[in-house]
Computed example of a mutant assay.
Amino acid sequence: MSEAVDYTHRLRSHMQSVGVLSFRALSRQSGVSERQIDRLRRGEADRMQVQSLHKIGQVLNLSIAQLIEQFSSLSIESAVPVESNLQQEYQRLQVQLVEQRETLKQEFQRSTLQSIESWLLQFPTAAYAAQQNPQLPAVRLLPLMRPIEQLLQDWGVEAIAAVGEEVPFDPQLHQLMDGSANLGDRVRIRYAGYRQGDRLLHRAKVSPV
């Protein structure tokens, strides 16, 4: 029982040195559950997952080896091979994370390409036809843009205002292309701007009316 008290006191000492005031705060800052923090207090660092030790160590400015040495019954000598094994496991997990990110990236790209497949296949031909025949009404190309519009809608991307629309000037949303305008003055949208939820992607370009 005395060992548990010693480990708890040791942990509090490290926490105080970095300004962490409670075990709950340590849990919150490290992203590790309070149950894992309790294992440190019981001196079970050598049986904890490497991810948890690494996250706690980042907050306390301690290496994995130091955590194992100070919060387990292992000696300094025996902690060295354990540290090596844990480092290898950590590196393996890092590689696995990179591979997962690449897989997700490829899946995202594949899904996106499927969403705009009809546009990819038809728009280059339509653009070529328009170049060969300048009299071709541009309105006939508009239906080809529907896959792009649907994709943007699925992602929650919306235009700030339609091109040609007159709106009150807001410097947070609009960028003047010429002239000057005060907040609330009427301006005309010349190039659409976009936002995604609460995040502004591009300000709309405007001119004074």
Results as ranks from 00 to 15, higher is better:
residue 111 S to W: 10
residue 104 L to V: 05
residue 201 L to A: 04
residue 101 R to E: 15
residue 15 M to G: 00
residue 131 Q to H: 13
residue 3 E to M: 11
residue 105 K to H: 14
residue 190 R to K: 12
residue 148 I to P: 05
residue 47 R to M: 07
residue 38 D to L: 09
residue 183 L to T: 12
residue 201 L to I: 12
residue 68 I to A: 03
residue 158 E to M: 05
residue 140 R to C: 07
residue 92 R to N: 14
residue 111 S to G: 09
residue 79 A to M: 02
residue 80 V to M: 10
residue 115 S to N: 10
residue 137 P to M: 02
residue 42 R to L: 09
residue 108 F to L: 15
residue 197 G to S: 06
residue 130 A to K: 13
residue 181 A to L: 07
residue 66 Q to I: 03
residue 46 D to S: 11
residue 120 L to E: 09
residue 141 L to N: 04
residue 47 R to S: 09
residue 8 T to F: 07
residue 14 H to K: 04
residue 178 D to E: 12
residue 16 Q to E: 14
residue 10 R to G: 00
residue 56 I to K: 00
residue 150 Q to G: 02
residue 187 V to P: 02
residue 22 S to A: 00
residue 130 A to N: 07
residue 51 Q to W: 06
residue 157 V to E: 04
residue 62 L to F: 03
residue 154 D to K: 12
residue 18 V to C: 06
residue 41 R to D: 01
residue 125 T to F: 13
residue 107 E to V: 07
residue 22 S to H: 03
residue 70 Q to S: 06
residue 60 L to F: 02
residue 83 E to S: 08
residue 33 S to Q: 07
residue 45 A to L: 03
residue 179 G to Y: 07
residue 48 M to N: 01
residue 47 R to C: 08
residue 25 A to C: 07
residue 165 E to Q: 12
residue 127 A to Y: 13
residue 190 R to V: 15
residue 12 R to K: 11
residue 88 Q to D: 10
residue 201 L to F: 06
residue 23 F to K: 00
residue 47 R to G: 11
residue 82 V to G: 01
residue 59 V to P: 00
residue 151 L to M: 10
residue 64 I to Y: 01
residue 33 S to Y: 04
residue 38 D to S: 12
residue 165 E to Y: 04
residue 42 R to E: 13
residue 98 V to C: 09
residue 58 Q to E: 13
residue 182 N to S: 15
residue 19 G to P: 06
residue 78 S to N: 13
residue 163 V to W: 08
residue 122 Q to G: 01
residue 133 N to I: 06
residue 47 R to P: 03
residue 97 L to I: 10
residue 200 L to Q: 06
residue 86 L to T: 01
residue 86 L to Y: 10
residue 10 R to F: 02
residue 152 L to C: 08
residue 182 N to K: 14
residue 18 V to P: 02
residue 11 L to K: 00
residue 41 R to C: 08
residue 71 F to T: 00
residue 137 P to D: 05
residue 170 D to C: 07
residue 9 H to G: 10
residue 11 L to D: 00
residue 207 S to N: 14
residue 119 W to G: 00
residue 124 P to E: 07
residue 119 W to Y: 13
residue 38 D to R: 10
residue 64 I to T: 08
residue 83 E to G: 03
residue 109 Q to F: 14
residue 128 Y to F: 14
residue 162 A to Y: 07
residue 169 F to Y: 13
residue 138 A to L: 15
residue 30 S to M: 02
residue 27 S to P: 05
residue 28 R to Y: 06
residue 147 P to C: 03
residue 161 A to V: 03
residue 93 L to I: 12
residue 85 N to W: 12
residue 174 H to G: 06
residue 59 V to W: 00
residue 83 E to L: 07
residue 117 E to S: 10
residue 101 R to D: 14
residue 192 A to W: 08
residue 64 I to S: 00
residue 116 I to M: 05
residue 102 E to G: 07
residue 74 L to A: 02
residue 84 S to V: 12
residue 200 L to F: 06
residue 206 V to Q: 06
residue 125 T to Q: 14
residue 101 R to Y: 14
residue 55 K to H: 06
residue 117 E to P: 05
residue 171 P to S: 05
residue 22 S to K: 02
residue 62 L to Y: 01
residue 73 S to P: 03
residue 74 L to P: 03
residue 60 L to N: 00
residue 22 S to N: 04
residue 68 I to N: 02
residue 154 D to L: 11
residue 205 K to E: 15
residue 132 Q to L: 13
residue 134 P to C: 03
residue 116 I to E: 02
residue 131 Q to K: 10
residue 24 R to F: 06
residue 67 L to H: 02
